[in-house]
Design a protein around this nucleic acid. Structure first.
Lengths: 260, 260
DNA sequence: GAATGTTATTCTGTATATTGAATGACGGAA
DNA sequence: TTCCGTCATTCAATATACAGAATAACATTC
């Protein structure tokens, strides 16, 4: 599409951009797809698409069913992911405090990695086993500015308002806040060091996020990660102040441990 | 290197083979690496390697530290893996019986995907929480012919002996069986429908593997998956016959459910 | 401070990956 | 059956990604 075209033309290895686009498409769709369908969707020439697919099959990143001539993701992607999980320092260090918080407060906690104003990816998760819990999966992507992490990124990223507003407009919420409300909440997050989403993103669910800076807090740089706590709003209310402090503390000490 | 050269020259999209090789290298090493080091290791020209890396960074599959000029895997690989896990039919269906077996026998169970005679990848795992357990991680790769899965693949894959022997020679075992012993064990697996490795691969540990055929057993095709049970040899002895039957049954019924 | 070994990066001609049209292969409709 | 549309795949011409040398930016060592 147009987005693919941009990343491709700039690069000196456009095949890689195409390959990544194919992998992501196959991941998103989930259903086995034929060459033509993939090519059409991505705006690729069918023959080129075929070569890309063949190369990916050779690498075991894509599986090919010779009978139906359909392609799907293959298990090779798992191997890469495992390697990443094993070596990511944030992930290693985050798991213990996330577990502790989840257990102590009976909530779900997440570690996320921030990709600018585009999106965040969940890289670690812990759930208190007791009863039902909201939960995502490791690897999930969310728009950067949504929910508590969104306010967190806005509050500590030093982005100009002109960059924030257009992105804000496109977000989906259960109970969307107004632009002015949101700005006020961002300002509050900046002052308190923790961002809160009280039922806006998902009705009845409170989300809290604290920024993590490599090597400790540094207001001149943008936080690369965040710790997130998710709980039922009603059940959380009395504990909220304590949880905010606990999350902020965990995020701070985690940041100080990062990068030696 | 030579292997990379082969897959590359055959392909009409060599950049993808290079990209995959870079990703795997970064995954294997775990440490951040510079352009030159990567290029040297893979037998690439530094400039080409640089372009590959830049493309991968643009796709968020590789992270670049501008200060140290070092590259590592990035979280994007996780997103792909998650997409794969969510829609792999074998994985979905395998988890429940794996959990059941793990709990009932107090062992670790695995679901694996077979890649010909090359290797297998662990795609699902279940551990009985009680005490210490041998365990791998989802995403791990093993040589195809090693341990119980190896005998399983040899027994049901209809491979000519001439293809098996050279690969067999290169395997690493705690207590390597002789070629003749191994062939006898393979034959036994063929007759009984389950393969057993009694302390050969890892001393003191018994591994059992049963083949899974899409759409039910079909001796004209090769099994694409297998269920594996891992337990301490001594603790398992009395239960072994029952476990073998249980694993075989689970593998059969799983195969029948696959592919609609 | 000069010299030497690194490193990452830019530059340029050419081998080649990409393209779009042509060819086959298939499946459903008439 | 024969037609038609759609599919995957091959092919030959050309735009371009790539290899290799040259450059630039470092550290380290003398």
């Amino acid at each position: 599409m147009t987005e693919l075209g941009d990343t491709m033309k700039a690069s000196k290895a456009p095949a890689i951009a195409r390959a990544a686009a194919v992998l992501r498409l196959l991941g998103k769709r989930g259903v086995p797809m034929g060459v033509q369908a993939i090519a059409r969707e991505l705006g690729l020439v069918p023959s080129t698409c075929l070569y890309v697919l063949r190369a990916l099959v050779a690498e075991e990143l894509v599986a090919f069913d010779a009978d139906t001539k359909r392609y799907t993701l293959d298990a090779g992607v798992l191997t890469l992911a495992r390697a990443w999980l094993r070596r990511d320092q944030f992930n290693d260090l985050a798991q213990a405090p996330l577990d502790r918080l989840a257990r102590e407060f009976g909530i779900t906690t997440l570690g996320v990695q921030v990709f600018g104003l585009d999106h965040i990816i969940v890289t670690a998760m812990s759930q208190s086993g007791q009863n039902f819990q909201l939960s995502t999966q490791v690897g999930s992507r969310f728009p950067a500015l949504v929910s508590a992490t969104g306010r967190c990124i806005a509050a500590f990223g030093n982005y100009p308002v002109s960059e924030l507003e257009p992105r804000f407009e496109h977000l989906r919420w259960d109970e969307a806040p107004s632009w002015q409300e949101w700005l006020a909440q961002v300002e509050e997050a900046r002052l308190s060091g923790v961002a809160v989403d009280a039922g806006h993103y998902i009705a009845g669910v409170t989300v809290i996020a604290a920024p993590v800076w490599k090597g400790g807090r540094d207001d001149t740089r943008r936080p690369g990660h965040a710790l997130v706590a998710i709980g039922i709003g009603a059940a959380l209310r009395s504990e909220l102040p304590r949880l905010k402090e606990a999350l902020k503390g965990a995020a701070r000490s985690l940041g100080e441990q990062l990068e030696g």
